[in-house]
């Protein structure tokens, strides 16, 4: 009989499910970077992302007894992160200090004169970060989940509790909106 190696995460998960806080702390330490990174992408605000990451782990702790292990722990945690970011979307602010992609601030004056487009002196990578921030929370979420994270339409639809068709339409509109926002950017 051969012994199958058990993933370290699984051992910690089993212990944490039994209420072992040290084991859960290990899980938080191991997954904090991925959870925080996803949260930053989804909410485009480092402070809010920290709240989302904290809330994600707190929710995970409470839900651990129900975690059946059908998927990897990290995948399960990812879903909680997206759900948490979704419930926090009302708190998202339009901001100029987005650490995401180190985007430089855009003067409000420029925006006022040219509300549908971004500053034409920006280059594409910086402007894309700004354009993402300009999308609605719902639109940014589908773009990030599909085009950055690589989720399928059906996975996005299931998570947002909409039909696959609605997810496709929302993504399509978000991409077109991004393209419009980037119309005047220096390519």
């Amino acid at each position: 009989m051969s012994l199958h190696p058990v993933e370290p995460d699984k051992l910690w998960v089993i212990a944490a499910r039994g209420g072992d806080r040290d084991a859960f702390r290990m899980l938080v330490e191991q997954n904090q970077r991925d959870v925080y990174t996803l949260a930053v992408r989804l909410v485009s605000d480092c402070h809010l992302a920290e709240d989302v990451a904290q809330e994600t782990f707190v929710r995970a702790w409470r839900a651990l007894p129900n975690f059946r292990g059908d998927s990897a722990f990290s995948t399960w945690l990812y879903r909680i992160t997206v759900n948490t970011a979704w419930t926090h979307r009302g708190r998202q602010k339009r901001h100029r200090h987005a650490d995401i992609d180190d985007v430089p601030a855009i003067a409000d004056e420029t925006r006022r004169h040219n509300p549908g487009h971004l500053d034409e002196t920006l280059h594409l990578p910086e402007a894309l970060g700004e354009a993402l921030n300009s999308l609605s929370a719902e639109q940014r979420m589908v773009v990030v989940l599909k085009d950055v994270e690589g989720w399928s339409h059906s996975e996005i639809a299931e998570l947002l509790d909409i039909t696959t068709g609605a997810a496709k339409v929302r993504l399509h509109r978000a991409r077109r909106r991004l393209r419009t926002l980037l119309a005047d950017v220096d390519w």
């Binding site: 990174t37 904290q54 707190v58 594409l124 393209r179």
Partner: peptide, 30 residues
Amino acid sequence: LRQVAELLADGRQSSWTPPSTLVDAVMARL
């Protein structure tokens, strides 16, 4: 559009360092 798509996909490679206080903050909130 292809450039935009490639840039978005490139974002997958990058990651952000969480605040050093995150783990303790989570444990305290439990």
